[in-house]
Design a protein around this nucleic acid. Structure first.
Length: 304
DNA sequence: ATCAGAGCATGCGCGTATTT
DNA sequence: AAATACGCGCATGCTCTGAT
C-alpha cells in the first residue's frame, strides 16, 4: 500500500500480522530478550578419570554384550525412570556409565514456579573422561542424541529375584501365586491328564476366580484351587515370561471362545504332573527357575 | 597472538500430555 | 478444569581448538 494516511491504514497494511494481538510472532510478544536468570552454581567439565582402570573392563563387557545381543540399544525416554545409577547409555555415540546420582533438589513448586528434581552425577565416559554434570543436563543430552543400553538377561533375573524373594519390613504383600485345575467339561480340555494353571493375582485368589466361568483366561469354567502362595513385589510380566521359558512347548495351546464368540488364547496353563508344577513355583520363589527347564518327554525337570 | 567456531553444561520458558 | 510432569527448544557463558 502506497498511500498510508491514517492509523487504520497502518493496521490494515500489516501483512505479517505483527500488530495483531495475542498471536505468536507479533511484536508484543517478547522474544530473544534476555531475562534475569540465576548463574550456574557450578559448570561441570569433562576431565580425565583417574580410576578409569576400574571402569574400562565394564565398557568392554558392555560392548561385547551388545555384539552378542545380550544387551540392546533402546530409545531414551525417561518415562519409566530410565536414568538410574549403574545403567549404561550411548550419548552422541559414546558409551556412558552413570556411576552415581546425588539428588540435592526435589521436584517442587514455589508460588507457581516449578522446580525439577536435580543433582550432581558421576558420569563416566568410555573415552576415559568423567563429568559431574547435573542429572537434568544428562537427561537432556540423552533426549537430544542418546540411547539407553538395556540390561542383560542375567541382570534382569537378579533384579527380578531381589524383588521377588527378599521380604523386608518395607515390603507389602502384592499378591498371590496360585495353582489351579479346571473343572471344564470341554472334551478338548478333559483330554489332558495333567493340566494346571499357574497364576498371579493382586487380590485374593477367591476373588480373582469368582468369575472364572465367564473368563477365557480360566477356560470359561469353574476351577479348583490346588495351592496358593503369598508373593511379594511381583512383576507379572517377568513372572509369565519365566514360566513360559521353563515349560516351553508344554504350555497349553488352545483357543477358547468367550461369551461373544471372540477367541482368546489363555496363557499360564501348563501340561505337566502336579509335582512338576509345584516344583516350578518353588523354583520361581527361590530364584532358580532360569537354570532349569521341563522335559515333557521324560516328564521331569532338568538343568538348562 | 588473536579470533572464530565448536562443544559442553546450564537455566528457564513453553506446548503438550498426564494426573488429579 | 486445573495442576503438574515431561520433552523439548533456545539463549547464555564458558573452554578448547584450529585457522589466520
Amino acid at each position: 500500500m502506497s498511500d498510508i494516511k491514517s492509523l487504520e491504514d497502518i493496521f490494515n497494511d500489516d501483512d505479517l500480522g505483527l500488530l495483531d494481538d495475542g498471536k505468536d510472532g507479533d511484536i508484543f510478544k517478547i522474544k530473544h530478550v534476555p531475562v534475569q536468570r540465576a548463574a550456574a552454581d557450578e559448570v561441570a567439565k569433562r576431565k580425565r578419570c583417574k580410576d578409569f582402570d576400574q571402569f574400562e573392563h565394564l565398557f568392554k563387557d558392555v560392548h561385547r554384550e551388545l555384539r552378542e545381543g545380550k544387551r540392546k540399544l533402546l530409545p531414551f525416554n525417561d518415562k519409566g525412570y530410565q536414568l538410574v545409577e549403574g545403567n549404561y547409555y550411548v550419548l552422541n555415540g559414546l558409551l556412558v556409565y552413570l556411576a552415581d546420582i546425588n539428588f540435592t533438589s526435589e521436584a517442587k513448586t514455589v508460588d507457581g514456579k516449578r522446580f525439577r528434581k536435580d543433582g550432581r552425577t558421576r558420569t563416566i565416559f568410555e573415552n576415559g573422561t568423567e563429568s559431574t554434570m547435573l542429572y537434568r543436563s544428562l537427561a537432556k543430552a540423552l533426549y537430544k542424541d542418546g540411547r539407553i543400553v538395556s540390561e542383560t538377561n542375567e541382570q534382569e533375573n537378579s533384579n527380578f529375584y531381589t524383588n521377588f524373594s527378599g521380604i523386608t519390613d518395607d515390603d507389602t504383600s502384592t499378591g498371590y501365586i496360585y495353582i489351579l485345575k479346571s473343572k471344564s467339561t470341554d472334551s478338548r480340555i478333559q483330554s489332558y491328564d495333567h493340566l494346571y494353571k499357574i497364576g498371579f493375582a493382586t487380590t485374593t485368589v477367591e476373588k480373582r476366580i469368582a468369575n472364572a466361568k465367564k473368563e477365557p483366561t480360566y477356560l470359561m469354567a469353574d476351577v479348583e484351587v490346588i495351592a496358593e502362595y503369598q508373593a511379594f513385589n511381583i512383576n507379572p510380566q517377568k513372572f509369565e515370561y519365566y514360566l513360559h521359558a521353563f515349560f516351553g512347548e508344554s504350555c497349553l495351546d488352545l483357543l477358547v471362545a468367550d461369551k461373544d464368540g471372540k477367541n482368546h488364547q489363555p496363557k499360564e496353563w501348563f501340561i505337566a504332573p502336579l509335582e512338576v508344577i509345584q516344583q516350578a513355583v518353588e523354583l520361581l520363589v527361590n530364584g532358580q527357575i532360569m537354570s532349569y527347564q521341563y522335559n515333557k518327554f521324560k516328564k521331569e525337570i532338568e538343568l538348562r
